[in-house]
Nucleic acid binder design. Sequence first.
DNA 1: GACCAGATTGTCT
DNA 2: GACAATCTGGTCA
Length: 193
Amino acid sequence: MNGKILPHKFYLRPTLDVARELLGKVLVHEAAEGETAGIIVETEAYMGADDPACHSARGLTPRTEVMFGPAGHAYVYFTYGMHYCFNAVTQPRGVAEAALIRALEPLDGAELMHKRRDRSRLTDLTSGPAKLCVAMGIDKACNGLDLTRPPLYIEDREIEPGEIVWRPRIGIRVATEHLWRCYIKGNPFVSKK
DNA sequence: GACCAGATTGTCT
DNA sequence: GACAATCTGGTCA
């Protein structure tokens, strides 16, 4: 690692602020097979009890337990019978909000990502929430991990994200009116324009 | 490029 | 039993 790991207090703020400021930060996973890292280029905010698209809006269940827990932990959920998605939990214990990481730009361990994903094009490795989980080796075992220490953490390598834009969230059927997805304009790894 | 259906299973009603 | 914070590969243009 050659950056500063983001502390818990980074995540103890309004989720929209955290989602925006995660852009340009670096997600690192030190797995047994090797280390992979990527620059976060796209996120979405899930706003808890008042957001019908948020898993936690229906209350505390075994699945959403981590989101109700303290900030700075990993919420990894399984969906569509085959995909994992990775979120960073925000807000204090009891407030169940999170920032979904939707896309990364590969930084370290691209070779290992290719091996895990079996895709030749670099832009196919991490340009989507389920894709990046495969490329980074993130699965159910990562659910609940503390993001301020290895093996899974997010650090600041002082990368300037560039121009940021806000757009409606993707892949949900309710609450689509909010501009709660943000990404780095023009970045080729963003999942969708 | 746009649009569409199929895959496949955990989670909640 | 219905549905899901998705991806892929097909068709048509």
